[in-house]
Amino acid sequence: MSAATTLPPAEVTKRRARGGRLSALVTRVWLIPVVVAAWEIGTRQAASAYFPPPSQIVARAYELWFSGPAAHLFLTDDALGDFLPSLARLFGGWAVACVLGIGLGVALGRSRALAGYIDPLVEFGRAIPPPALVPLFIVIFKLGTEMQVATIVYGVIWPILINSIDGARYVDRLHMDTAEVFGMGRAQRLFRIILPAAGPKIFAGLRLSVALAVILMVLSELVGSTDGIGYQLSYTQMNFDLAGMWSVIVLLGVLGLVLNASFLAVERRVLSWHRRARQTT
């Protein structure tokens, strides 16, 4: 496997793939411009106040967020005021849920006794629809960031927790035996064996939770907030700014898309062993 022998053909296939990839891209995404164009024409014809044409939505989005000074990456003050608090809550809540969910999940997955005590509580906790706790959190934390983060943490922790329990519980017995035979300590077993072995499951839970985090961020900001993307949404609604409202909706779609894509990219890197091992067997 010397580089000299493998590189040229690889380069050739890469180039060929690039041409092929372009046409593959066209066959895959052609529908999107078609739909957007049809929507533009349709909404112009209908001229309904509720359904502004896409061009108007884009113009409004530009005006709202992207017409700022170059020093701020063209973001307006409104954009910074909306995006930053929302993203901070989103990632903050998600990070807290990750640490708690994985930590508790691995502990529950590895200890049958502990799981026996806690299992019914977990089952019940995950069955409560997270928005149902918003009224309670409003009373306890008052309106504001704490309430929003609490809502996100409570809502997204369940998929992480359940998947971590599952992943840690079903680590191959022979993996654990091997670790024991070679005298690996507790910490080493946790970090070198249990966490990697449970990795694919944990990541599946994390991906579900990212999508949930966006939903709960918006919800908690709609219910009670003075800044953030969700607040912007209810603000545009109150002012009957429909183009602005549609911009927020599109923005949230893009946010979800970007989050999911970047998450998949990270997962691909971290779990490359898992994907490739499955392909070869």
């Binding site: 035996d177 070679f182 690996m184 990697p196 062993w273 898992h274």
Partner: peptide, 29 residues
Amino acid sequence: DLAVVFQDYSRSLFPWMTVGENVALPLRR
């Protein structure tokens, strides 16, 4: 000071580590 070679190599080697890491891992001890 005891080592075991199990029958099921595919489950006794750790798929998330390279061959080198697999062999070197117990040497930490």
